[in-house]
Design a binder for these strands. Sequence first.
DNA 1: GCTGAAGTTCGACTTTCGCCGTACTATGGG
DNA 2: CCCATAGTACGGCGAAAGTCGAACTTCAGC
Lengths: 110, 110
Amino acid sequence: MARYLVQPPVEDIRLADVMRALSEDVRLRLVSVLADGEFHSCKPEEFEVGVHKSTLSHHFKVLREAGVTTTHLDGRNHSIRLRREDLNARFPGLLDAVLHELASRQAVTG
Amino acid sequence: MARYLVQPPVEDIRLADVMRALSEDVRLRLVSVLADGEFHSCKPEEFEVGVHKSTLSHHFKVLREAGVTTTHLDGRNHSIRLRREDLNARFPGLLDAVLHELASRQAVTG
DNA sequence: GCTGAAGTTCGACTTTCGCCGTACTATGGG
DNA sequence: CCCATAGTACGGCGAAAGTCGAACTTCAGC
């Protein structure tokens, strides 16, 4: 039985919430991993940010509640993905600008 | 004797700092007023956010230190302005996306 | 049903943040 | 020189945020 965790509908996504969600280094690195637009498992191994798994879970919640990501639940496995279309519809150009910076950052640091 | 308050050079503007600066309602309203790109006096009357003038000063400092605004000092008068060119150069499309949302918000609320 | 794996939830701690009020600084004008 | 004006700096307070560790929940597999 697959289902999705609660998240704000597109029209309720607030700019301040999105900006705040994307104002933290750990979460920016998570988004960096999610930049390909695909679903990713929520395993700490996938996201090599040096925080405890409960902290990671907290950050995923912040991203989801801000409307930045969507979380799909299937069995014991949670999958997370960026809400690209929704964010582009709500704040055109915003996510692209952020992803562009994250990409160019990775090009530098390896 | 006119001069400028200290601010980060373009290349040192950090995404997380800009996002955080723009993640707060009061500061978003300040940016909304500054959206025309012109210099504005720092008087509380110019920015009708219901906070104490010392709080307002604090928010201006946050914006300036994040690299969002530049502050010009002439005599007793401080003037503040968006760093449009710098932000566009550093994070193309980011500021425009934010300003677009702020503008469409004003169109709704009057 | 037991066990292990994947993640969440909760409590506690520490740091940061927004806010105010007061004191302070600097400048322009009489 | 004195005073009013325009703002900053500082101290304190309560709320929010990031972190961890431990306990809990849910499900797959045996």
